[in-house]
Structure formats: C-alpha cells, structure tokens
Design a protein around this nucleic acid. Structure first.
Length: 910
DNA sequence: CTCACTACGTA
DNA sequence: CGTACGTAGTGAGG
C-alpha cells in the first residue's frame, strides 16, 4: 500500500483531495504581486507560485492519499449555450495569467498528479462527479475551490476548502460551517444561490431578495421547489419580486446545478498519489526559478521515500567484511578480475587535502560485499596491500569524481590508477545541462533506490541490508560502503545511457584520461612571485584610496562607491545626471553607462569613480591570488570538468581563467605568475581564432575556408570581401565591425544586438549582415541548419559527438525558444573548441611522458595552454606542443598555434 | 547566515 | 534582443 501521503495511524481511510485548478490559480494570480514573481526572462509566475505553494501546504497538512486537479476546458460550456450571458461580466483573462496555466500543468505532470478537463463542462462538474463517486466508495473528500457552487456537495464525508484570503487561508466548509454561514444545509445552497444570484457568474437574482430572505424562505418551505409552488402565498415586496422572476430563478437553479454523472477518464481509484518524477520536477522548477518552493516540497518527501515501492526488488544488499589480518588482500585477490567501486571520504583539494576513510565494494548483483575502513585503523601490512591495489592500473575501479578521489588519496601518499569508469563524468556527458551530479541523486534517479546510511534503518525494505562487523561500526565507513556498492550498478546503467547517446568513447578516450591529467595539473600548480604580488596590492590600494578621496571631494561627501544604490543617489539625484538604462533596482551604473555619462557631462566624479572601480577590482583579484598561494608558493586551481554545458572546463578557487589581460594595469597581474624553481621558463601556446576556424569547418563555406588558407589577416580578408575593397584598404574601423560580427554570429547575434554593440543603426547592421552572408552564404546555411537539426533531434553535437540537449527549441515561450536557438548556434562551436583543446592536452601530456621530459602542463584557458619548461627542453617542447595542438583535430582549415616564451605569464604571452 | 542582484574579469 | 563561466560586494531577508 502506498503510504506516501498518509498518516500511518489513519491509513485505512483513503482521502481524496480535489482542486479546482482555474479558480485557485486565478485567486493566486490576484493574491501575489506579478512583478515580484517572474523569471529572469520576465515570464510571470505568480499564479504558479501561489498555486503550487497552496498545493504543497495541502499535501503536507491534509495528507491526502489521492489527488487530482480539474481545469475548465474552455469558455464554451453547456451552460453558456443554455444561457449566453452566463459568466458574461467577467473581465477578459489577463495576458499575464494565461501562460501560467500550462506551467501549472507542467508542475502537476512532474508530480504525477493527474489533471482533468472536459469539453463543454466546467471544472466544478468534474469535481462534483469525482466527489460523489469517491463518497460512494467511502472515501473522505476535500474539495479546494473558489467557486461557491461547490458548497452544494458538502456532506459529512465531503469538505470544501474555500479561500478566504488569497490562497493561503482556506475555510473548512463542513455541513455545519455552511449552515452557520448561509443559514441553509449544503444541499440547499444552490436553492439559495438561485434566489440571490451570483454577480461573478452574471446570474441575476431576485431583486430585493438577499441571502437572509432566501434562507428564511428555504427554511420555511423546505426548498426551492416548494417556494416556487407556494410563491403566491408569499407576501410583501419580496414575494412580488419573486413572482416576477420565477423563470429566472428556475433557470438559475438549472445552471448552478453541478453534474455528478459526467464521463471521466479516471475514477477516484485511479487518483492515488504517485511517486514524484523528481528529475522532471527539478527541470520545471529550474525553469520557473522556484528555489524555496522546491526545497519545501522535497523536504516533505525526502529523496528516496517516493521510490520505495519500485526499489523493493532492486535494492542491493551488501555486507561489510570485518577486517582481520590478511583479509584485505584475500578479499581483493578474490576479485582480481572484477571492476570494483571505490569511494573515499576526505578533503578533495589539490594542495593540503586529506583522506580519512575509504570503501571498496563489488556490485555482485545486489548481494555484494564491501571493505570499509578508516585510514587510521589500517595496519601497516594492509596499507601496503591497499596502496598496491590503488596504484595498479590493471585493477579496474569505478569512482564518482575520480579526480577528487585522486587528490584525497594523493594527500596520503597513494597513487590511484585504473579508473575505468567515472559515474560523475558519465552523468555529465549524458546530461550536461544539469546543475550537479550528486551520487545519491543519481542512484535514486537511475537505480530507483535511495542511498541511505544503514544504521538508521537497517533491514528496512528498500534499504541496504548491511551486516556490520565487529569493531567496524563507524558510520562514515558504512556510509562509504553504501556509496561504493552503488557505483558498479550505477556505472552499468549510465554506461547504457552513454551508449544510447553515442558518448561512450567520449568518456573512455577523452574525459576520463583528461581527469587524470587535470589531477596532476592541479597538484602541480603554478608558481607565484608573492613579494611582487604584495607590492602590486599596495599599489592598487593607493590608487583606490586616491580615487575615493578625489571622488568624495567632488561631491562633498563620503558614499560607498561600491554600492550601486548609493551611486544612483549621487548620480541621478544629487548630480541630476541623465538617466541610464533601466534595471530591476533602478538605473544601471555599469562601466559602459558611466563612460556614456562622462561623454555627456564630463563630470570629474565619473572619472574618479571609474578609476576607483578599476583599481578596486584589480586589488581584489590580487588579494584573491595572495590568499590562494599554498605553502609551496604555488597556486593550485581546481578545474571543474562537469560544469560547463558546452564541454568547456571551468576554473575555481581561484579562477585562473579570468586573470586580466586587456589593460596594462591588468596585465601587470600576469607578471606574478612565474616559472618555478628548477625550470627554465614558461611557455604559452594558443589557438588563433579557433572558433572561427570551427565555423569554417562546420559550415564548409568555401570563401571562409579560403580566408584561412590564404594566410592573410582573417578580419581584413573578410572585410575586403564584404566591403568590396582590397584587403590592404580595409580600415581599422571596418575591420573591427567585421570582427564583432563574425564572432557575434557564433553567439546568435541579431542585427539589433550588432547595432547596439557597434553603435550604428539597426538598418546598417542588417545591411552589414546581409553583405556578409552574400559573400559567405555557407555560413548562413550552416547556422540555420544547425538550429533546424537540433530542433528535430533534440540536441546539438560537436565534432567529437558531445551533445547538448535543448528541449526549449520547441517551447511555446518565445524568450525561452530564442534563448535555446542561440545556445544551439553556439554549443557546437564552443564545444568543438573545447573538445579540440582537450585532445591536445592529452597529446601534450602523453608526448612529454613518452619522451621523458620534465616539462609540464600547468594551465588551460579555453584556447591556451601554459607550460613550465624543463631545463634544455624549450626547442623540443615548443615543437611538440605545436604538433599536438595543431593535429588535435582534422579540420578543413589549418589549426594555427602561436607560442610565446618568458619568465612570467605576462612575458610569455603575445 | 543565505539569497538575489549588480558588476566585471576571461575565452 | 550574443555564448560559456566565477567571484565579490551590497542590501534585503531570515
């Protein structure tokens, strides 16, 4: 029996929750401010938020076992046919509301809550039908509706929850409550409503007859029929009025009678609450940008609880083997030809990490065995056995985030080899747009059971049945055992997913080997000139102080120059400058806007402010670097391999992929990155215009390919074709326009965007693009083709087959669809470039190792590699790097590599 | 303390 | 109304 919503003490009585979708969503829409609930793309979500929030509360508080939502199918119903004025006074549905009903349905679908709608009928009829059926089945029924007509089916088993304030406060309309509020029994409510009328439905009542009179008559005569029969006996003005409107009252009663016998695809029994599709919920809540609400829901039903049913058979059992002398070696030897799961607990950083416990498990089809132990409890003999096994590349291992595991083990002096599958990398390749790849979530999603520490509920259905050995009851180790045991099973499932996506090779030959390279790259770090960095910090600090002082002097007071809010006050109130571009919190004070303001006003405050901004940022960067220098005098960044949906790496703690280069002051920071002791120099090697070359390759455009083969300056060459002048006569202004456009095309730039960027008219920008496509028609064909294909297949692909799935390409929402289109344009280009440099990194490392050189790779900055050159190896290394980078992909155009050498990153740059 | 927002650095 | 990232400060909320 599914007990996910039910209180265990009250499980015998099924409880059905029915919701009138439209009326509650509509109330939510007016209850919450639409401007406070919108996605970053401006899509209003207030009704969705209010509705789902109310739903969450109902699920928690009422604990229904069965749930359904009914929607109105359209504005035409049998009632409007019978009485065209019905609901005629209603204002047109607000535009902001319309789009939100489908979103609510998306959420409901993800929560596997059925919703019903039926042509020609209203939601209330569906609710009445289901309610009466459920009542007959002995169920307890809760009807959540903002339509008072629903009060007619209230009885001892059926309660209506009627919104009193917004959607957060619901009145429990039991028979007693109806009696108290309206003075009649629930089944008599439509009689009362027929007499009184309902303004919101444009149903006129009997003039002069209000709820009080109506109730009095109903109680006096027993019901509407009797009132009508005895209409002649009723005296006074009210009686007169009634006799004048008998037909209207009869019609009213006919209209407000809810049908309890319409045909529906589901009966109450089919509405049993189902386990949520958490993946779908995550996707839809991501899109809606509901954070708190998602957490509120998930907190009600923690991961795993939903899938207990399905998990019953699938849940593996694993026994943790008590460790006696010799057992580890025996256990491992018995599994010499198996692939084993390995999980380590520790601090996974490239310098100063640690490991405190580990687990190794086989995944013997749900009845496995595991070793789980604190490193502190490891005997010297077992330590050797473990170290040998870890370092043996022929002993196959599955890890989740092998690079992190590698760092943890390296901190304890172990080498780790032989990782043949990494579940985190595999999940990333399959679902590159996902936020994270938590092992527990993956297990739940792909294995259908939860990853639960055993000691809380050992022996429970659906959990691991771990027999804990003597002296081996440490919970951390057991937690690890459960994780390790899941790895081989998960690897199998994700391996299948990879195959389906034709990405198995990508994992085995690219990402997995790359993770080993990155682990070493991170552990090496790059040497820093700390003294120089400190001087630089002092220097930038002085500029900051000076700029701040000058700025305060100009405006005659001290403000926080780092606060956009305070700056707005100074600029637009105190100094009364013209307003800049509007943003959520007022008017922007970004650098472009400030420069624009300076051009208009020449106010010295702006100069000082900009100088202060620049210097502050540079100082921050320097401070961040100083803090990141490890004990070895080097900075060890972490390269994230599963973050960027296009396939790029990213760099964190610190980010070494965004060190300034464009300004002279910024470039000075690069002087702090220096060659380390024992090495000759730094070498940087970067691809020139790799994205444009990929564009040429993928489009096959002969003119663009020729541009690269000609060996001339690309943008001048393209400019000469577009403007119809010799290459030598392309002005620098023309060249930069061409450059901006060429790169913009790869990002899905519009003529509007191009005009804004270049500060030209939209027409001129459009003309520029037309002229470009006139000469490079293959590019246009390619760009439109790539979106069409992605729409058809659901994904884009890079030259190495790395996919990015873009379901929004078919979205009804224009903003989302166009965003997806731009992603589709860019992903193959950015992603192919990422593929190529990853191949190059593997090639460079492999060649260096094969030739026994000491030189080593230190950094990757998307299209650039930084290496430390061993003494006497410069010439050979440069040739090797050029060769490996140049041959990393076989394109229709050459892959140009430029190399620089110097004692610092700045000096090695070009 | 966490979060959204603004701003800005890189490819 | 151009893609992909990470970081830092502010100010509002808890």
């Amino acid at each position: 029996m599914d007990d996910r919503f039910a209180d265990v003490t009250d499980i015998a009585r099924p409880r059905l929750l029915l919701i009138d979708g439209h009326s509650m969503a509509y109330r939510a829409y007016f209850a919450l401010p639409v401007d406070k609930f919108a996605t970053t793309t401006g899509e209003p979500t207030n009704a969705v938020h209010g509705f789902i929030s109310m739903l969450a509360t109902l699920l928690r508080v009422e604990e229904p076992t069965h749930v359904a939502v009914a929607f109105d199918a359209g504005s035409t119903t049998f009632r409007t046919v019978r009485f065209p004025q019905y609901k005629g006074t209603r204002d047109a549905t607000p535009e902001q509301f319309k789009g939100q009903v489908p979103l609510i349905k998306e959420v409901l679908t993800s929560m596997r809550i059925p919703f019903l709608e039926k042509d020609m009928f209203e939601a209330d009829d569906i609710l009445a039908t289901l309610s009466s059926q459920a009542d007959a089945l002995g169920m307890e029924v809760l009807v959540c509706s903002g339509d008072r007509d629903s009060l007619q089916f209230v009885n001892e088993n059926v309660t209506v929850l009627y919104p009193v304030k917004g959607v957060s406060e619901l009145a429990r309309m039991t028979p007693d409550a109806v009696q108290v509020k309206y003075g009649v029994a629930p089944h008599q409510y439509p009689d009362l409503a027929a007499l009184v009328g309902e303004t919101s439905d444009n149903i006129p009542g009997v003039p002069g007859v209000g709820p009080k009179t109506a109730a009095k008559w109903i109680n006096q005569f027993g019901g509407l029929e009797e009132i009508l029969t005895h209409a002649d006996e009723i005296g006074g003005k009210a009686g007169e009025s009634l006799r004048a409107h008998l037909d209207q009252v009869r019609l009213n009663r006919e209209l407000n009678h809810l049908l309890t016998d319409i045909e529906l695809p589901f009966g109450p029994d089919d509405l049993r609450a189902q386990p949520w599709d958490r993946e779908a919920m995550n996707a839809v809540f991501d899109a809606l940008q509901f954070r708190t609400l998602r957490e509120r829901l998930f907190a009600m039903h923690p991961a795993g609880q939903d899938s207990e049913q399905e998990a019953a058979q699938a849940a593996p059992e694993v026994e943790v083997v008590p460790l006696a002398p010799g057992v580890l070696a025996q256990w491992l030897d018995a599994r010499a030809d198996q692939t084993l799961g390995l999980d380590v607990a520790g601090r996974a950083v490239p310098a100063g990490g640690d490991a405190w416990a580990f687990a190794i498990a086989d995944g013997a089809d749900g009845a496995g065995s595991a070793i789980a132990l604190d490193f502190a409890d490891l005997t010297a003999a077992d330590d050797v056995v473990l170290g040998t096994w870890l370092a043996d590349a022929t002993r196959r291992k599955v890890a989740h985030g092998g690079k992190a595991t590698w760092h943890e083990l390296a901190a304890r002096g172990y080498d780790l080899r032989g990782i043949v599958f990494d579940t985190e990398l595999a999940a990333y390749l399959c679902f590159p747009d996902q936020r994270g790849y938590d092992l527990g979530e993956l297990v739940e999603r792909h294995l259908g059971h939860e990853l639960r520490a055993l000691e809380t509920d050992a022996g429970d259905q659906g959990s691991f049945d771990l027999s804990v050995g003597e002296g081996n009851q440490d919970s951390e180790a057991n937690r690890l055992a459960v994780r390790a045991a899941a790895l081989t099973d998960l690897a199998e499932v994700l391996g299948g997913e990879l195959k389906d996506r034709e990405a198995a090779d990508l994992l085995a030959t690219l990402e997995l080997p790359l993770s080993e390279v990155l682990a070493q790259v991170e552990r090496r770090g790059i040497a820093m000139d700390v003294d120089y960095l400190r001087d630089l910090e002092k220097h930038f600090s002085e500029i900051v102080a000076e700029a701040a002082r000058s700025a305060y002097e100009v405006i005659g007071r001290e403000v926080n120059l780092g606060s956009p809010k305070q700056l707005q006050e100074v600029l637009f109130d105190q100094l009364a400058m013209p307003k800049t571009k509007k943003i959520k919190t007022g008017y922007t004070t970004d650098a472009a806007a400030l420069a624009d303001l300076f051009a208009k006003t020449e106010h010295p405050f702006l100069e000082f402010l900009l100088a202060h901004r620049d210097a502050t940022r540079l100082r921050q960067t320097v401070e961040g670097l100083l803090k990141a220098v490890a004990d070895d005098g080097r900075i060890h960044t972490t390269f994230q391999q599963t973050i960027a949906a296009t396939g790029r790496l990213s760099s964190t703690e610190p980010n070494l992929q965004n060190i300034p280069i464009r300004t002279e002051a910024g470039r000075r920071i690069r002087r702090a990155f220096v060659v380390g002791d024992g090495f000759e120099t730094l070498l940087t090697a970067d691809y020139s215009q790799i994205e444009m070359r990929i564009m040429a390759h993928l489009s096959g455009d002969t003119a663009l390919i020729e541009a690269f083969r000609s060996g001339e300056d690309l943008h001048s060459y393209v400019g000469s074709r577009v403007f119809g002048v010799p290459t030598t006569e392309v002005t620098s202004a023309q060249r930069s326009k061409i450059k901006a456009m060429s790169y913009g095309l790869a990002y899905g730039l519009s003529s509007f965007g191009l005009s804004k960027q270049l500060g030209i008219e939209v027409g001129e920008a459009a003309k520029l693009m037309d002229d470009y496509f006139e000469r490079f028609g293959g590019v246009r064909t390619y760009l439109t083709g790539v979106v069409d294909e992605a729409r058809a297949t659901g994904y884009t692909a890079t030259i190495m087959g790395r996919r990015r799935y873009l379901p929004d390409l078919t979205s009804d929402n224009r903003q989302r669809r166009e965003m997806a289109e731009r992603m589709a344009l860019n992903a193959p280009i950015q992603g192919s470039a990422a593929d190529i440099i990853k191949v190059a990194m593997l090639g460079v490392e492999r060649e260096i190792a094969e030739r026994g050189l000491r030189s080593r790779l230190l950094l990757q900055i998307h299209d650039e590699l930084v290496l430390e050159v061993g003494a006497g190896e410069l010439t050979e290394l440069e040739a090797l790097v050029r060769e490996q980078m140049g041959s990393a992909a076989d394109l229709l155009v050459p892959l140009d590599v430029s190399v620089g050498v110097g004692a610092s990153w700045h000096d090695a740059g070009h």
